[in-house]
């Protein structure tokens, strides 16, 4: 075998990819050819050093950055999909109307448009009325109302998902010094503690993942339930007002007005607690 042929096959020879006959020929050739033998040894040195390169660790913030990008990617995908779904339908209707416009007289088309506008207005009005009426009813209607609100918000281009709340539930027996840490964390993410349960907290859904990231190493999430629409801000306001009232009560323990006000706000909060209007997330403190 000639040196040029050996050089052509050297890489495969090094990888043991040649048939035994060709391999033997190369081996014999190298026994008598120092130049080819040197090339082979050099090649084996290259391969050996490449194999020793090993692996490097991922950057510490790799998963965090990827998570943020994926969330943003997921949202833009969702938006594209919603856009396509929504405006695709609008485009289809427009094309239909334009087609009809070509086929019928212009005054007739005008009449149709006026009629459809008034129907749309009527629908909007009905939805608003239903919304108000539904709010006054029980939770079954409230769920329906919630869906309708989502639909209305979607029509206005609002980010309805961000308007739902999260409730975190700590196991009673594990209510320890960690409580203050949790309160601080929850507050940092725009949430608050729930008045009638020392182990429950609420956080806006848009901070759910951030909160999770900051507590995941210390607490275990047990279960999550979502029942209804967001009332976090309303709840938080009431809760803070109640705190202020209680402070005032401490200074004026005999004030009947303050007591009355406290009772009123406490019952409102209790009503909100019992209506199950939030995400529930159980967190177990790891020991």
């Amino acid at each position: 075998m000639e040196c040029s042929r050996v050089m052509e096959l050297l890489s495969e020879y090094a990888d043991d990819e040649l048939d035994s006959e060709t391999s033997d020929e190369i081996r014999k050739h190298m026994e008598s050819c120092s130049s080819c033998k040197y090339e082979y040894e050099l090649l084996m040195g290259v391969i050996d050093n490449c194999r020793r390169l090993g692996e490097v660790d991922l950057p510490g913030d790799f998963n965090k950055n990827l998570h943020e990008k994926l969330i943003s990617e997921g949202n833009s995908y969702k938006n594209r999909y919603i856009w396509l779904k929504r405006y695709g339908a609008v485009a289809a209707v427009l094309i239909l109307f334009i087609s009809i416009g070509f086929m019928v007289r212009s005054d007739m088309f005008g009449m149709k448009r006026t009629k459809s506008s008034s129907v749309a207005q009527e629908n909007m009005k009905t939805s608003s009325e239903k919304k108000v009426q539904s709010k006054a009813n029980g939770s079954a209607d409230e769920k329906k109302n919630f869906d309708m609100n989502q639909e209305l918000k979607s029509q206005r281009g609002g980010k309805s998902v961000n308007e739902i709340s999260l409730m975190i539930n700590l196991n009673g027996e594990e209510y320890t010094k960690d409580h203050q840490n949790i309160i601080n964390t929850v507050y940092r993410f725009g949430g608050c503690k729930i008045q009638y349960d020392n182990y429950q907290y609420k956080v806006p859904i848009n901070n759910l993942f951030k909160l999770y990231e900051s507590i995941k190493d210390d607490y275990k999430i047990k279960d999550i339930l979502l029942n209804s629409e967001d009332k976090t801000l309303q709840y938080k306001k009431l809760y803070e007002e109640l705190d202020t009232l209680k402070e005032s009560e401490g200074k004026n323990p005999d004030s009947a007005d303050i007591k009355k006000q406290i009772d009123k706000e406490e019952s409102e909060l209790k009503e909100m607690d019992e209506s199950g209007q939030y995400f529930f997330v159980s967190i177990k403190v790891l020991r």
Binding site: L53, E55, V56, D57, L58, P59, F62, N63, N65, L66, K69, L70, E73
Partner: peptide, 27 residues
């Protein structure tokens, strides 16, 4: 992801660029 990052790192020879590329690959 670790292998993605390592292939990228060996390909471009720069840790930060490899991180960006690996993220781009994942996306």
């Amino acid at each position: 992801q670790k292998k993605i990052f390592n292939i990228a790192y060996r390909m471009v020879g720069n840790y930060d660029d490899a991180s960006d590329i690996a993220q781009e690959v994942c996306i």
